[in-house]
Design a protein around this nucleic acid. Structure first.
Lengths: 223, 223
DNA sequence: AATTATTTTTAGGCAAGCCTAAAAATATAA
DNA sequence: TTATATTTTTAGGCTTGCCTAAAAATAATT
């Protein structure tokens, strides 16, 4: 209905899912993993992959998997850009907290207008990262490296500053809020438990315990 | 997928269309007029009306027409509120001009979140009207009267200030831009042509001619 | 009242996206 | 290699929302 419909809503969700699952290097993705990620039936994925393949947004080889074409990747990056800019808007301008914005941005990312998103980018001051520390692709699709590493990669005695999270789950983010861990928090690893890799750390001077699972999703700039 | 889906996108478009066509008093609307307004086949309207009627969003009596229930009207006003707040945002914050925003707002109005729209309202300073001079319903659904009347209702020698437009068509709005007619312009009717009701007027001191059709869509505060 | 015109509904189809169930292909294990 | 398990595809259905064509109802004319 609006402008040229490059891709339907459902198509965009598939493209984004494949992009997320592929990682930076663009590994081929299995039908079942897409199915699991999107919570749809594998049969539905088969059909959609065929359709998107015909549109040249991805390539599919049986028993090898699906990977995005340059065109598909460009579309995916555009969606990620929109998502992260909207998240930034919601937090910076409308005062939402970081655990509230993901689902809203999921809706807003489908708004079709290059012009709108570029203006929003400018309005926000061309931010480099979103509220979760994820990099925001620029207008041309370039993504700056953040230099973030997982807190669980730090050794005992090492320290850094929290710069992002590896997960958008609102339960996880609320938990971080409770622990008073946020972007900018100073972390020092005091001790690593050999048995379960759980970490004893000081966050902004306060001592806390973190499971390995939790620590792995906290991203930091190493000092 | 998100919150309870009170109405689908298509349903919302129907509700909004019926609301627009009904006017303030909520006149019953014929199937064919909805069909014409939305550019869909009358048969499609029949089906949708039946569906919305089952949802208690509207009432339908054959050969009498369709009118919104209180529930339907509330939904419609909510959509109008969202549309006008987004238009205001696009113009005030992102620097769009008034003829560019209608189609974008048509997309944004379907974003589902009460919280978001109330925060946006606050962020914009609880505006009373949108960039076209249309009143923005408040959180509770109340719509302030603007006191605007059509320029074509003015008599010769009378004057006022432009406060809005009765039409969102971008060709119409661009034409007004060319004539340097905008909200706040001071108008004085100099002469009304008896034959075709066209108007000779001065806008901010400059003399221009307006067809009746054009003048009828320019809304003013009468001095 | 009867004819004509208009409006509205019914009937039957189509495309998108999802589903389940069953078949086929591939991978793993014995 | 054969048997078992997993993954993937095909086949057939469902819902939403649109379409066209034809039938039916209502309104307007003569």
């Amino acid at each position: 209905m609006y402008l040229c419909s490059v891709a339907t809503l459902a198509e965009e969700d598939y493209i984004k899912a494949i992009y997320s699952l592929s990682g930076i290097d663009g590994n081929p993705i299995s039908t079942s993993s897409i199915s699991g990620y999107l919570g749809v039936n594998p049969a539905s994925v088969s059909g959609m992959v065929k359709k998107l393949s015909a549109k040249k947004l991805l390539e599919y080889k049986r028993s090898h998997g699906t990977s995005l074409t340059a065109k598909g990747k460009k579309l995916a990056i555009g969606i990620v850009r929109k998502h992260r800019l909207w998240e930034t808007f919601l937090v910076e301008k409308l005062g939402f907290s970081w655990e509230e914005v993901h689902d809203l941005a999921e809706q807003l990312e489908h708004i079709r207008s290059e012009d709108l998103i570029n203006r929003l980018d400018g309005y926000l001051g061309f931010p480099k990262t979103d509220p979760h520390g994820d990099p925001i692709p620029d207008k041309s699709g370039k993504i700056a490296q953040t230099g973030l590493i997982s807190l669980s990669k730090l050794g005992s005695g090492e320290n850094g500053v929290v710069g992002g999270v590896g997960n958008q789950d609102s339960k996880f983010l609320k938990h971080l809020n409770q622990l008073k861990v946020g972007i900018g928090s100073e972390v020092k690893v005091l001790n690593i438990n050999d048995f379960d890799k759980s970490i004893e750390a000081s966050i902004d001077g306060k001592k806390i315990f973190l499971s390995d699972k939790l620590a792995s999703q906290i991203l930091i700039f190493k000092d």
